[in-house]
Design a protein around this nucleic acid. Structure first.
Lengths: 167, 167
DNA sequence: GACCGATTACTCGGATATGTCGTGTCCGAGTTCTACCGG
DNA sequence: CCGGTAGAACTCGGACACGACATATCCGAGTAATCGGTC
C-alpha cells in the first residue's frame, strides 16, 4: 500500500501557491525548479488538481496554476482524492460469495464484516484528512520557509526566462 | 493507493480460523477451496502472517495453520502490517531540502508540515485498526455464516482427501 | 503617438515508453501418518 | 498380538515468470504578450 509520489508534490505546491497569494499564478517549470522535480511529470499531478477544481490553470506566457479558492477552503482530502483517485484503498471482492463454502445471497444483504471494519478505519483516515486544510499546513510550517519561498518566486519572476542579461 | 488483495484474504482466513476454534488446524488448500482462491498465492499471505506471529504453521499431513492466540487478542492492524509491511503509505522524500529553493538544514529540525499532517491522518487510521480485533469482526458477521463455515470444514475433514470412497 | 495585426514564445494538455511492485505459479525440504514385516 | 521400520503422501516454504500500475518523458494545441507597421 504505497501512496503516489504526486500527493507529496501536489501538497507542497499548494502550500507554496498559498504563500505566494491566492490570485498569483506560478508555472509548472518554476515549481519544479524550486523543489528539484521533473517538470513534465509534476505537470501531470497539477493537471489532476485542476480537473478536481483545486487549482485553476491558465495558458500562454505568464500562465500557470493558481489556487481555486482560499487555502482555508482546500482540505487535504481533496488533494489526495484528486491525485490518488476516489477509490478506497481496501476493495472488497466478495470472496464470501465465491468458492465451495459460499454464502447464499440471502446472507449478503449487508456488506461483509471484514469490509465494514476496514471501511470504518478508512473513514477515520479520510475524516482526519478533511479536518486539515492547506492553511493549517501553512500555519504549522516555519515562517522562514514561507518568506524564502515568496522571495525566491519574486526573483525568478523578475529574471527574464528567455536569456540572461549579458551586462 | 491500492491495498494488497492478500489483506482481504488474510482477514477472512483469520475469521474462519476463529470460528473453527483457536486450537484447530486448517490447511491452505482447504481455505483456498472455501473462498475460491489460488492456493499457492494464498499460502504466500498466510506465510507472512505466520512470520508476524499471528498464525502458527505445522507441516505434514493434518498440518496447516492455526491462530497463534485468542481472536480477541489479534488486532486488524497486526494482520494489515504483516501483509502490507510496516512502512507508512505516505513517504516523505524531503523535497523541501532539494531544488533551487531548498531550505537550509537549520529549518529542518522538525519534520516538514506536510509529512506531519499526513502522518496524523495515518495514525488515526492505524489507531482505528488497532481497536478492532478478529473477535470483533466475528461478532459482527451473521451467525449463519459462522455455522456454515464450521460445518463445511467438518465435512471436508471427514472426507478422505486421497480418494473418494467408492461405496 | 495610438491602434491594429501578425508573429513568436511560452504555457498547459494528453499521448507515449519504461521500471517496479503486486499477482500468480512452480518445485523442493520437512514431517507425519500408514502399511508392512518381524518377533 | 505387538513393536519397529520403511515408505508414501501431504504440508509448508521459498524461488521463479507474468501483468498492471506508477513513474518518467515527449510533442502538439492554444493563448497571451510582443514587435512591427499603419493611420
Amino acid at each position: 500500500m504505497r501512496m503516489s509520489q504526486g500527493v507529496e508534490w501536489g501538497l507542497h505546491c499548494c502550500v507554496a501557491l498559498g504563500w505566494i497569494g491566492q490570485g498569483e499564478v506560478i508555472s509548472t517549470a518554476k515549481l519544479a525548479a524550486k523543489f528539484g522535480l521533473p517538470a513534465a511529470y509534476l505537470n501531470k499531478s497539477l493537471q489532476a488538481l485542476a480537473r478536481a477544481g483545486v487549482l485553476v490553470s491558465s495558458a500562454g506566457p505568464r500562465g500557470g496554476f493558481r489556487l481555486a479558492r482560499a487555502p482555508s477552503k482546500i482540505t487535504l482530502l481533496e488533494v489526495v482524492d484528486a491525485i490518488e483517485g476516489p477509490e478506497a484503498a481496501f476493495r472488497c471482492t466478495e470472496i464470501r460469495r465465491t468458492g465451495d463454502g459460499a454464502s447464499p445471497a440471502s446472507e449478503c444483504k449487508r456488506p461483509c464484516a471484514v469490509a465494514a471494519a476496514m471501511r470504518q478505519a478508512e473513514v477515520a483516515w479520510r475524516n482526519e484528512l478533511s479536518k486539515q486544510t492547506i492553511a493549517t499546513v501553512m500555519a504549522s510550517a516555519p515562517q522562514a520557509a514561507a518568506d524564502r519561498a515568496v522571495q525566491w518566486f519574486e526573483i525568478t519572476r523578475s529574471a527574464t526566462p528567455t536569456s540572461a542579461a549579458v551586462s
